[in-house]
Amino acid sequence: MAEITAALVKDLREKSGAGMMDCKKALQETGGDVDAAMDWLRTKGLAKAAKKADRAAAEGLVAGKIAADGKTGVLVEFNAETDFVAKNESFQNAARAFAEVALTTSGDVDAITAAKTASGEVVSDVITNLIATIGENMRLRRAAKLSVDQGAVSLYLHNKQGDDVARLAVLVALEGPGDQAVLGEVARKIALHVAGTPTPPLALTSDELDPAVVAKEREIQTQTAMESGKPREIAEKMVEGRIRKWQEEVVLLKQPFVMNPDQTIEQLVAETGKQVGGAVSLKGFVRLALGEGVDKKADDFAAEVASMTGGA
């Protein structure tokens, strides 16, 4: 019998798409023979994940949790192929469990995937088993975590699909002394703003904007100014003004507060500091919209139906 090494388990896992513990068991059952272990996994229905790995998973849920002390919050995006599966109780429970795990880890996808749920199952194995059971490709795509030493982290779920799960979720962290309930409520209102404002913020401050995004906007504004026929020196001044205006539109602290457009988010935070009797700062925010940025192939489902019905 061959020794069941970590490298052997890793090799089988990559070939089969099955969970680590399932791969180890398969190798133990087959004396370390990888080909026989693949067959063993297939008979158990655990090698299905590999066949589905190239199918777009753009539906699903965003799950959010706030720690009991109100100072830490997490979001996880758990994807499947169809919104029908997103309504499945097992899928929703898994998303909630992954959010709970995120609270106990660094909050990144790799750490969550390698950790265990409250029931003792490794997250990656839970996903693999769900794929085998439900029959759709799934993945834990994104995760985020915010914490404060003092203050509050609040969560807003938009278009909720059940307890703690939605299609859009926002976390906001307010750091500062004073009444945590007051800070938590203001953070919740800012989270609602982030979810509902017509122009979703790209960064907390101008300095935190992605340089590539700024360069792209500058390029667009430069081309627009030059096409207007203005002299270059005037065009360049026009561009700088337009970039400043654009930054005010996409930087959270500079945006008009949706509940009071006469007040910016920055002014709201300053006012909150006066209310609680200490300096308050907006430490960060995270906005996760389900499927955002996923290159979903529109013909995936149609092609599968055609193959099942004998159509072209």
Rank of each mutant, 00 (worst) to 15 (best):
E3P: 10
G178F: 09
Q267N: 14
D110L: 04
V34M: 04
A279P: 08
L27D: 03
L282V: 10
T105G: 01
L202E: 12
L155F: 03
D54F: 05
L252V: 06
T105W: 11
D110Y: 02
M38P: 09
S90L: 14
R232W: 10
C23D: 08
V294N: 01
E233N: 11
M1F: 12
E29L: 14
P201H: 10
P198Q: 11
V269E: 13
A289H: 00
A63F: 03
A203M: 14
D108N: 13
K10E: 12
P261N: 15
E136F: 05
V101A: 06
N88W: 11
A187L: 07
V280L: 06
F91G: 01
A203D: 10
T30F: 09
M259D: 11
A181H: 02
S90P: 01
W246T: 07
Q161L: 13
Y156R: 00
R244A: 15
D207Y: 04
R188N: 12
A143M: 00
A49C: 02
A270W: 08
G278R: 05
K15E: 05
A118E: 15
P201T: 08
T205P: 15
E266F: 05
K245D: 09
S147W: 02
K65F: 14
P231W: 05
G70P: 11
G162P: 06
E89C: 08
A166E: 00
P256C: 12
N137E: 09
L41D: 08
A57N: 00
L146S: 05
Q263I: 15
A57L: 01
E121H: 08
I243Y: 09
D207F: 11
M308E: 13
D207G: 09
D39V: 13
S307G: 15
W40E: 15
G107T: 04
A203F: 15
Q221R: 15
L140N: 05
E233K: 14
D83W: 01
M259K: 15
F78S: 03
I265N: 12
N159E: 01
A37P: 10
P261Q: 15
S228Q: 15
D149A: 15
P261I: 13
G277L: 05
A2E: 14
L155C: 04
A86P: 11
L41C: 07
I66V: 14
A97M: 12
R42D: 06
D210R: 07
F91M: 02
R142G: 02
A114R: 11
L12S: 11
L41E: 14
T133Y: 01
L103F: 03
M259V: 04
R13T: 09
R242L: 06
G310A: 03
H193I: 03
